[in-house]
Each structure stands twice: as structure tokens, then as C-alpha cells.
Design a binder for these strands. Structure first.
Length: 489
RNA sequence: GGCCCCGUCGUCUAACGGUUAGGACGCCAGAUUUUCAAUCUGGUAACGCGGGUUCGAUUCCCGCCGGGGCUGCCA
């Protein structure tokens, strides 16, 4: 199956767009077809510089690289494929040609109405509580007059002539049968006065010429589908299948908007979400596997995805589950990969981390405790910088460590640990010795271990006391305990 | 206003006439524990309303209500 994603380069890639792209990608992959990327830049005003690069980069991040059309190669945007160009502004003659054909066959007509007249017309219709629709003012202009005005270069558009007695019915891949009465469908402009096509004509011409089998797009297009169906019919082409996916919603169930929360995929990248997590989350918004499985890699999705399990209703874009998935995916990262990614990040704060031979073991200590990679450096800070410790931190009510008790505890810790040689400095042994010592001194485990951990890390929470003691090594451990003793005085 | 789409826990969802309406996230409680997480166990919570059809409706039909999308020479 050939599917496509066809964004407008009007800014950053919207998460809803990313989801649509994901679905199209999955269908193409699982049917061993192709996933195309086409740029819909027919609105010159709204095109934004750099938007194409950004869209491509985001798709790449998500693992959804297109295999035909507009793509990225060595950091440069280029087009690949035999059905191009894949940028609509480069296909103008094509649209004009087909618009001319429709005109010639009487399926479309030239309209000279000014924007002012149209506005006035609509206002009148609304005041009369009528549906705003073009009143066909220009439909019956004598052929001669049309030619004459055209020859004089009068601004005009081309409109699709919609037969009012026509009933449009089609079977949507997600919604089933949908139908519209012809008289409720407007004579839409298909070619603008600047010679650019509107979405409607461009979509039909391109998806036919690019041999797209299945159009997956947002639900906002559902009500324009009859126009597209008519265009295919009038051009003598077979229409593709359509799948209108439900919209992503704000908390108040309105269409997801920038006003209420971050909608650019870019925002989520910057917040540190893993592509695996975002993709997994997006897939589960509006689609379900029909099983109890919650975590899906892109490969697994390709395996089991199907449009008939896509929800009809819109889904609120609620991030709580995304955070959970993020935690799941980060813990699922193999330790080597987790360490690699974290090392780079940590080295930016602590250059020493770059060549730390023990980095992997250290990273492993926080693997289960971290949800975002960017929280990692803070959690590893005590390995690369002297921790700031205070009496307030060393004492802890919950652990029943009072300030009065601290000198004794620290002294005990120092004595016990000093008695352990470098060679015996392994977790099992430390555990055995320290626990025995606690018992001897009539201290609870918490009373002994909280000050140890706090003195070593300077943090209210961190990996366990034994793990930290081993990871830091004997000299550093003893030095930090001495420092702790000093601040008591 | 018109047209179209939609309606199960707070959220994402399962169910395709008969279930104690299931799962996940969240939340709450407990377990574990040297802290924080993580992990495990348990709990909380939903079929929008009214009519039909049927022995039986969350499920099928109709109406209402509610929500959304479209209604541009934007996509």
C-alpha cells in the first residue's frame, strides 16, 4: 500500500500530525508498501522558512523516515521518487491543466466575484440563518463574456460545479458508511486567483498521480470528502480509500490547541521524552491492540496495527500516561545505551564524567530511579563534585537520627569502615560489617545508614548507602565522613 | 443556524444481545525498604437521557441531550 503524510510547512510538526504520520507509516510498512512525504505549500502566505527541515528532522527522530517524496539526505532536503515533484508549489502547471479540463468539460466554472461581494453574500445568508454557500452568481455568465473578461485579465477563480441532486456515499476505513446530500455541498474554489490550487484540487491531483491507495488524514477533512470524491469522478479517476482519524483534544474537549498546551512534537523532544515513549503514547491514543499489551515498539506496532481498531471519538491529549510510558521505556533501555546517552549529558556539567571508567556502573545505580535523562546529572553529581552537607540533612526525624546522636554515629561509621581494607571493600562485606556494627551499637539500620548515605551524597534521596559506599571507594568515603564530622563542630 | 462525525471509570480504552461491565494510567491503602524511586498486592471509579425491538440491552433502531469538526481564493 502506498500511503502519504502531507503536512503544510506552516511551522513545527503538530503531535496530531505526528500521529497521523505514524498511522500512515505503519500501514505502508506492514503492507510492504511505501510511505511518502509531500509538502502542501499552496498557501504562500502561511509558509514558514525552515519548516520542512523541522518536519523531516522530527519524523526522523520518531523513526518515521519517508521512503519517497521529500526527504532528508546528509542534512539536506531533497526529493526522491518517480512521481514528483513532491512539493505542491512545483506542480502548478499540473493543477492548472486539470482545472482547465474540468472547465472544458463543464464540471467547473470561472467566477469573478470579489472577496468583498462574497463576504457580503455570506453575511446576508447568515443573517437569514441560511448556510453560507456560494450563490452561483457566475455560473450562468455567457461564454463570450467570460472569455472577454478573462482576456482583459480580470481576477478570477475556478469553482467546482456540484450537482445538487447528487448523493455522495463512501465507506470510510474507520467510520464505515458516510453520506452527504449534494445540495449541502458548496461550489468550492479549486483554483485561486493567484494560480495556486486549493487543498481540494491539489489533494485529488497529487494523490491520484502519486498512486496513493489510502489517504489517512484528520477528521477535520471529513466534511470536504464529497468534494474530493466528485473531483475524482469528474476527472475519471478511481478515488483512494479514506481513513479519517479522530482529533486530539484539549482537556475541555476542544480541538487540541497551542493556547492550552504544547502541541509541537518538538516541545516533547525538548522535554526529554524518548521517541519510543511518544510514539507508543500516540499509538495508544485512539487505537488499541485488542490485547492487554501496553508497550509497543515501532516494530511491534507495525506488526499489529490496524485501522479497524482505531477509535471514532476524539481523545484528550492527557500526558499522565505518557510520563508512565517514558519511565517504562527508559528503564527498558539496555544499560550500555542508557549509560552512553547519559554520559554525554553528564559530561556537559561535569567534564570528568567524559572519561570516567566507572561511568557505566554509576549510571546503573540511577537507571531505575530516573524518568528523564536530563535528571541524571543531578543524581550523579556527588561522584564528580564534593557534596554540600549540613547538619539538617545528616539528622533525620523519620529515621530517628537526632543531632545529638550524630557524633556517635559518625564515629562508629568511621571506625567500622576504617577497619575494612581496600580489598574487602565490596558490597556483601560492607553490608555484613555495617549491619553487625549497628546491632552492636544498638542502632537501627536507618540510624546508621541514613547519615552515611547523606554524608556521601549530600542528597535527601539517592541510590542506597551500600551501593554508594562501594561506588565511591574507600578513600573518598572516609574523607567525606571526616568532612561530616567537621561540620558537627 | 446548516451539514457531518461522535458519546463506557477523571484519562486512554475492552466488550461485537446474556460478563460480578475487563485492562492500563492516575489516585488511595498495604507490602518491600537505609532515603527517593522502582517493584508487588489490594482498593476507588463508567455504560448521557427517554422510548422502542427482544425472553434479555452498554451492545440493534428512533428521538432527545451533550461534545466536536466543517461551513475561507487556510490547510
Amino acid at each position: 500500500m502506498r500511503t502519504r503524510f502531507a503536512p503544510s510547512p506552516t511551522g513545527f510538526l503538530h503531535v496530531g500530525g505526528l500521529r497521523t504520520a505514524l498511522f500512515a507509516y505503519l500501514i505502508a510498512r506492514q503492507s510492504k508498501g511505501r510511505f511518502l512525504l509531500r509538502i502542501e505549500d499552496t498557501d504562500q502566505q502561511r509558509s514558514v522558512e525552515g519548516a520542512v527541515e523541522n518536519i523531516l528532522r522530527t519524523l526522523h527522530w520518531a523513526g518515521l523516515d519517508p521512503d519517497e517524496g521529500v526527504m532528508m539526505s546528509k542534512g539536506m532536503v531533497k526529493q526522491e521518487g518517480t512521481k514528483g515533484p513532491y512539493v505542491q508549489s512545483e506542480r502548478l502547471e499540473l493543477y492548472q491543466k486539470y482545472a482547465g479540463q474540468l472547465l472544458k468539460d463543464g464540471h467547473a466554472y470561472v467566477c469573478f466575484c470579489s472577496p468583498e461581494r462574497l463576504t457580503k453574500m455570506r453575511e446576508g445568508q447568515m443573517a437569514r440563518k441560511q448556510a453560507p454557500m456560494y450563490d452561483r452568481h457566475c455560473v450562468h455568465l455567457p461564454k463570450k463574456e467570460v472569455e472577454q473578461r478573462l482576456a482583459q485579465g480580470e481576477p478570477h477563480v475556478i469553482r467546482l460545479l456540484v450537482p445538487h441532486d447528487h448523493v455522495f456515499t463512501y465507506v470510510d476505513e474507520i467510520r464505515g458508511e458516510v453520506s452527504f446530500q449534494g445540495h449541502t455541498v458548496d461550489d468550492q474554489v479549486i483554483l485561486k486567483s493567484d494560480g495556486f490550487p486549493t487543498y481540494h484540487l491539489a489533494h485529488v491531483v497529487d494523490d491520484h498521480l502519486m498512486e496513493i491507495d489510502l489517504v489517512i488524514r484528520g477528521e477535520e477533512w471529513l466534511s470536504s470528502t464529497p468534494k474530493h470524491l466528485l473531483l475524482f469522478e469528474r476527472l475519471g479517476w478511481e478515488p483512494p480509500k479514506y481513513a479519517h482519524v479522530p482529533l486530539l483534544l484539549n482537556k475541555d474537549r476542544t480541538k487540541l490547541s497551542k493556547r492550552q498546551q504544547d502541541v509541537a512534537a518538538e516541545d516533547y523532544i525538548q522535554k526529554g521524552y524518548l521517541p519510543e515513549a511518544l510514539i507508543n503514547f500516540l499509538a495508544l491514543l485512539g487505537w488499541n491492540p485488542g490485547s492487554k499489551q501496553e508497550m509497543f515498539s515501532l516494530a511491534e506496532l507495525t506488526e499489529v496495527f490496524s485501522l479497524d481498531r482505531v477509535q471514532k471519538a476524539g481523545a484528550i491529549f492527557d500526558l499522565t500516561k505518557l510520563d508512565w510510558l517514558q519511565g517504562q521505556w527508559i528503564r527498558k533501555l539496555p544499560i550500555a545505551e542508557f549509560a552512553d546517552r547519559l554520559q554525554e549529558l553528564t559530561a556537559k556539567r561535569f567534564p570528568g564524567a567524559a572519561h570516567d571508567p566507572h561511568f557505566k556502573e554509576r549510571a546503573d545505580l540511577i537507571h531505575e530511579r530516573v524518568t528523564f535523562l536530563k535528571d541524571g546529572p543531578d543524581m550523579l553529581a556527588f561522584f564528580y563534585a564534593e557534596p554540600k552537607i549540613s547538619v539538617e540533612l545528616l539528622a533525620n526525624t523519620k529515621q530517628k537520627v537526632s543531632k545529638d546522636l550524630l557524633p556517635k554515629i559518625l564515629k562508629t561509621l568511621v571506625e567500622t569502615l576504617e577497619s575494612i581494607s581496600e580489598k574487602e571493600w565490596v558490597i556483601e562485606n560492607l553490608k555484613e560489617q555495617l549491619l553487625a556494627c549497628a546491632k552492636e551499637e544498638d542502632l537501627s539500620q536507618g540510624q546508621l545508614l541514613w547519615p552515611l548515605r547523606a554524608a556521601l551524597t549530600g542528597l535527601p534521596y539517592s541510590p542506597g548507602a551500600f551501593e554508594v559506599t562501594v561506588a565511591l571507594g574507600r578513600p573518598t568515603t572516609l574523607k567525606r565522613l571526616e568532612n561530616a564530622q567537621k561540620i558537627l563542630r
